[in-house]
Amino acid sequence: MLPALLDVLLLHVLRAWFDEQAGENAAGWVAALHDTAVAAALSAVHGDPSRQWTVAELGAVAGLSRAAFARRFTALVGRPPLTYLAWWRLTLAARLLRDSDSPLAVVARKVGYTSEFAFAHAFKRQQGQPPGRFRRSAVGNAVAPTD
């Protein structure tokens, strides 16, 4: 029962800190998550990263025009919406490559790429190495479980 109580306490402390940071001078993720429009778009992207999102669609989710949404998102998140989407997809892909044995084509589709070649090119640009090599190095660096 003690671990559960510690989890609840940690959650309470984090919520209090998060709320305290959300004042008028809030910046970065705190500000982005407290902005209902940007938070709605982030939730949509995180909920369905493989969808072929457009700025106009994300703006509609946020309840803003395309241009107003793009300005607001970029100001709060620090990168334009589709740049963020690409980063998020490739971050998820790295996790899938590290934690599963799914073929590259399957990983590519799961994160929204229709072409394995486009996925590999984008992945190499972000991670500095092709997905296959990334997977091999991630598996090689994994720590073996101990009994």
Rank of each mutant, 00 (worst) to 15 (best):
S102D: 15
V107E: 03
S102I: 01
G140S: 09
R109C: 07
V139C: 01
V139R: 13
H121M: 03
K124E: 15
A105R: 14
F134G: 07
S102M: 08
V107T: 08
R135C: 07
R133S: 03
S102R: 06
D101M: 12
A138D: 02
V111N: 06
R135S: 02
K124N: 08
S102E: 09
R136V: 06
R136F: 00
R136W: 03
G128C: 06
Q127I: 03
K124H: 13
D101Y: 06
L104A: 11
G112V: 07
A138I: 06
A105E: 15
F123C: 02
D101P: 00
G132A: 09
K124F: 02
D101N: 12
P130V: 01
S115G: 14
R133D: 09
A118S: 15
A118H: 13
A120L: 03
G140N: 09
P131G: 04
S102Q: 09
Y113K: 04
G112L: 06
L104G: 01
S115D: 12
P103E: 14
V107F: 07
D101A: 15
S115F: 10
S137W: 06
R135E: 09
F123G: 04
F134T: 05
N141W: 09
K110M: 13
F123W: 03
P131C: 05
R125Q: 13
A118G: 02
K110W: 10
K110Y: 10
D101R: 14
G132C: 01
